[in-house]
């Protein structure tokens, strides 16, 4: 079967989704491999590092993707845009339900000990960042994650969040400023001490 290719010469997400919607089991396998890590990464960051909850959200988001496949309207939205929006909504719902719960009960990111390898430094930095992102508003956390970790452009983020591009820029800027302030006192711990 001929399928539409994306800019990397791979079968596009949409073509795979349509194939799955027509009963192609292998298309589901390809989509799962391609999209589940992205969904999990985004959900984990949105949920402040709560891995178990992020896996539940990922499963639910992928299930919704399978269910929408037969009715997918081609050319209207990117599959990833749709999926990020679903994950975003699921995470927001869960965060609302958790309001009032001590989010610090979630695994504490940094232990303060100096990291001995670059990998450990990276892990410490990532944990510190995710920990600090818990204190952002949901919108700031979502915008910063999509822009600076998932690497999406502002127009696509605007579609995911269903807000204007200007609003995305504003949320991102305020979120970054808040992170920069929150993490400033941890420079040494983050490996910036000698710079």
């Amino acid at each position: 079967m001929d399928m539409a290719l994306d800019q990397n010469g791979e079968i596009s997400d949409e073509a795979l989704l349509v194939a799955y919607g027509n009963g192609d089991r292998e298309a589901a396998f390809a989509l799962t491999t391609r999209l589940t890590p992205r969904v999990l990464g985004f959900a984990t960051r949105m949920l402040g590092g709560d891995r178990a909850e992020a896996e539940d959200v990922s499963q639910e988001a992928m299930l919704r993707l399978w269910k929408v496949a037969p009715d997918w309207r081609q050319g209207e939205a990117k599959v990833t845009t749709w999926l990020y929006r679903v994950v975003s909504n699921l995470c927001t719902d869960r965060l609302r339900k958790k309001r009032g719960v001590d989010i610090d009960a979630i695994e504490e990111p940094a232990d303060g000990r100096p990291a001995v390898t670059s990998r450990l430094i990276a892990e410490d930095r990532a944990r510190a960042l995710i920990g600090a992102m818990r204190d952002l508003s949901d919108g700031q956390r979502q915008a910063v994650t999509l822009r600076h970790i998932e690497g999406l452009g502002n127009p696509e983020i605007a579609k995911i969040m269903q807000i204007s591009t200007e609003a995305v820029e504003s949320l991102t800027a305020r979120g970054k400023r808040a992170l920069a302030k929150a993490l400033a006192h941890r420079r040494e711990e983050l490996g910036y001490g000698d710079e």
Partner: peptide, 17 residues
């Protein structure tokens, strides 16, 4: 410094169990 944190987050993205 902030970008280095984002890069670290990208490099240590969780893998599905």
């Amino acid at each position: 410094e902030l970008e280095a944190l984002f890069e670290a987050a990208r490099d240590t993205a969780p893998m599905p169990s």
